[in-house]
Structure formats: structure tokens, C-alpha cells
Design a protein around this nucleic acid. Structure first.
Lengths: 236, 236
DNA sequence: ACCTGAACACCGTTCAAGT
DNA sequence: ACCTGAACACCGTTCAAGT
């Protein structure tokens, strides 16, 4: 099906130029593709460049270095977090937990990004929305200012660490069966320890090795942190 | 000063052989030296090998791969933690905090090891002592078994994440003045944000950027976690 | 059994030269 | 101004060959 003759031969708005110009956004897009498909380890300047059909040197006109590219991936992930639940002071603890769940969800959706996030100071536009939301919830719970400010550091630190731990496990080429076998071996190992020196490790071998399912462990963590923060509110 | 003639010419026990044989321990020693002197980034198979006057291939007879070497560095650090304070059930919360401080101390003493530790499952001999101590303290505080078991994961995760954050900051070639300037700029940035969208971030700009001193922030974290765990003990 | 040189398949970053 | 090829100084790991 060819173009009717009254159409201009050179299209006014080409859908795709022969060679799209490199931009920051296109670089981050490509990096994000590599990240979700092959994990953080695979995100190299060279791989991202070849994903864009060019050489690694070309990226340096738009991105200062690898660290800045990492930061941009973290920022992208923060943009995907949705906090639209209107704040209800009576439910601030439940809402704080839901906020942390949403943070973990977004990091899980971009496997490997936690590795880049764990050492990054969040200053981007959307990371600020997370900060603002946490502060609002803690103020609703009467948590003192300095405590709320520190919690803004503690909460993402915890969520990111959990996400990172998960990706370390899955990044190694272990099948779910391998993980299961490993956990099972670990329980046997704990149970066989000298009971005089490690009485509780032996006695609690089962619960110690039951947390591999992930979600229950994360729920425990956000419960502890939320309850701990709640104790900081002055009781009038 | 030459040897007196009645001394045997070939010494019975040479203080140092011309070429000491490679061992796991010597490799970890060398890696530890590189780690504390130049940080985690510098710990490569090649650098460790050249520290020992050999090539990288030689290490593979004693160490499976880089990941195993990382694990051994973490194990070394765990060995340096001292928990000899006899357990006093009445002071379990204070003692739990002291335990976390000791964990952080040991990681700080080996700058960069946190990076290796953050994705490592602690199974070594000495890491078990940490596990056993945390369990003992939580049992003293009547924390339920499953909660205590999960706390064994949560506590090292938090301490390691804090240590890692610190090394990321110091690993970049920033002087203390650079850090101070960065924090100061960040405060100014927060204060200049649109107050209608980020009211609390603007209002709390000062406390948000005051935590860079480190210790106070860590104290906050261990207080929140300890208080949170205490709420899990059934009140009889 | 342990050690080694050389090679393989990768990195991040720089820089002079092109358009 | 943006892009590129080529180079520099690195990685982890393997493997055949030596002792």
C-alpha cells in the first residue's frame, strides 16, 4: 500500500528518524531496559551504549559518569511510586506501612535498582514526594520534628536494604529449588550446632530459617519500625 | 654484624622462607590490608595477588571466587566483635543497643567491609555468636520466638546498611569540607522548595539536614528498633 | 598438589579527530 | 555542539603448562 500521490513525499513529521539524537532520557530508558532484563550487574556504560547502537564514549556528552546514571535509575524508580491515599491522622501507622509497601513494590518492579539506590542521597523531584509523605504521616502521629526527620532516612534505608538483599539472592543464578535446598541445609546446620554454646540458635532453627518467603519478614520490619516510631510521640 | 662461626650456616628455623606458601589465611590477611587501606573498590583478585607477590590465578587454588573472598572478609570482621557483657534481663534493651553499637564499631574499623556484608548470609562461626546474643537478649525481653528470629535478620541489616552508607560517602574523594558544603547546599535547596507542595520538607529543612554527624542518627535508629521490638513482648 | 603466564571477555573514562 | 574510534588502565576467571 503506497502513499496516495497528493501526500507530500517528505513526511512532515517522520515517525522515526534514521538516527534519533541521543538524549538523557533515551539513555535512561535504555539503562532501565538493561536493568530490568539483566539486573544491575549488567548495566554498564558499554552495554547501555550498544543498546542505543553507539559507543560508550557517546554517553558522556549527556551523563557525567556511571554514578550519575545510577542516580537517574533510582530517580526513575521513585517516579513510579504512587501515594494518593488521602492522609487520615487516625490511621497514620497503617498508612505509613502502606507507604513502605509501595516503596518496596516499585523497587521490586525494577530488579537491581536497589543496588544503585542504597548509596544514593535522594534529592530528585519525586524522591521529595516520598520525604514529604513520610513527614506528613509522622506529624499526624505527633512524632517530634527531629525524630520525623531522622525517620526520613531510616525508612528508605530499611526498604532499600530489604530490596537489595532480595536481588542479591535472585541475581545469583539460583533456581527456587536451589534456594529451598540452601535454606533446608541451613536449618540442619543450625540444629547440629553445639547446644551448650548456641542454645537458642539450635532451639530456634526453624523460625530462624522460615523468613525466606520475604513478605512476612518485610511486614515484621515495617511493624517494628512503625511501632518504634509511635513510642516517640509524647503522650499528653 | 656477621654470624659467629659456631652458628650453623643454614638456620634451623628460618624466620621467613624465601617464598611462603599461599594459604587461605594469608590471602584474607592481604585482602584485609587492601580493604582498610584503599576501601572495598580496591579489593580485586589482582590487587590482592600482587600484594602477595603473585598473579591472580594463584588465588583460585585456595578461594573459589571473589564472592567467597568477600564472605571471608565479613567473617573476619565478625570475629572482631566483642560481646562479653553478661546478660542482665532487666537491662535487655540497653544491652541490645550496646550490641548494635559494637557491630557498627567493628564494621567502621574495616572501612568498606559493609559493602561486602550487605548481601552476605552470615553463617560463619563468629557471626553465630552475634545471632545467639541477639536471641538471648530478646528472649530476656520476652519477645516471641518468631519475632526474635526475624529480628536476627533486621538488626544486622540495619547496622550494615548504616555502615555502608557511611563508606559510600567517604569512599568518594570528598573532603569533610565538601560534605559540609553539600549538606549546606541541600538545606538551602530544601528551604527554597515550593511550600505549597512540600510544606513539611521546607519547614523541617534544618532537622532533615542535621543528621550528617552520623552517631546521633544511628542512636535514633537503634532506639526505634529496640522500642519497636519491646512492644512485641506480651504484657502479662 | 600447587603455582603460573597468557589469554578471554569484559569494565569506566579520556581524548584527539571528525561532522 | 555533538558524536566517534581508539586507546588506557583496569576487572574476574579459565586453562594448559610447568614444578
Amino acid at each position: 500500500m503506497s502513499q496516495p500521490p497528493w501526500q507530500p513525499i517528505t513526511p512532515a513529521k517522520p515517525v522515526r528518524q534514521a538516527k534519533e539524537p541521543l538524549t538523557r532520557d533515551r539513555i535512561v530508558d535504555a539503562a532501565m531496559r538493561v536493568l530490568t532484563q539483566s539486573g544491575y550487574e549488567a548495566v554498564s556504560m558499554r552495554k547501555v551504549a550498544s543498546e542505543l547502537g553507539t559507543g560508550p564514549a557517546s554517553l558522556y556528552a549527556h551523563v557525567a559518569n556511571k554514578r550519575e546514571l545510577d542516580q537517574l535509575l533510582v530517580e526513575r524508580t521513585a517516579e513510579q511510586m504512587v501515594f494518593d491515599d488521602p492522609i487520615d491522622p487516625a490511621r497514620w501507622q497503617a498508612q505509613l506501612k502502606a507507604t513502605m509497601r509501595e516503596m518496596l513494590r516499585a523497587m521490586r518492579a525494577n530488579p537491581g535498582v536497589a543496588r544503585a539506590a542504597i548509596g544514593a542521597v535522594p534529592v530528585g523531584e519525586r524522591a521529595l514526594r516520598t520525604t514529604e509523605r513520610i513527614l506528613t504521616l509522622l506529624k499526624a502521629g505527633n512524632v517530634p520534628d527531629q525524630a520525623a526527620a531522622w525517620a526520613v532516612d531510616l525508612i528508605p534505608l530499611y526498604v532499600t536494604a530489604v530490596a537489595f538483599e532480595e536481588t542479591v539472592q535472585s541475581a545469583s543464578d539460583w533456581t527456587p529449588e536451589d534456594v529451598e535446598r540452601f535454606v533446608s541445609n541451613l536449618r540442619t546446620y543450625f540444629e547440629a550446632l553445639p547446644a551448650d554454646r548456641f542454645p537458642l540458635t539450635v532451639a530456634l532453627a526453624a523460625p530462624l530459617t522460615s523468613g525466606a518467603d520475604g513478605d512476612a519478614r518485610f511486614e515484621f520490619g515495617i511493624t517494628v519500625i512503625t511501632a518504634g516510631l509511635a513510642t516517640l510521640a509524647p503522650t499528653p
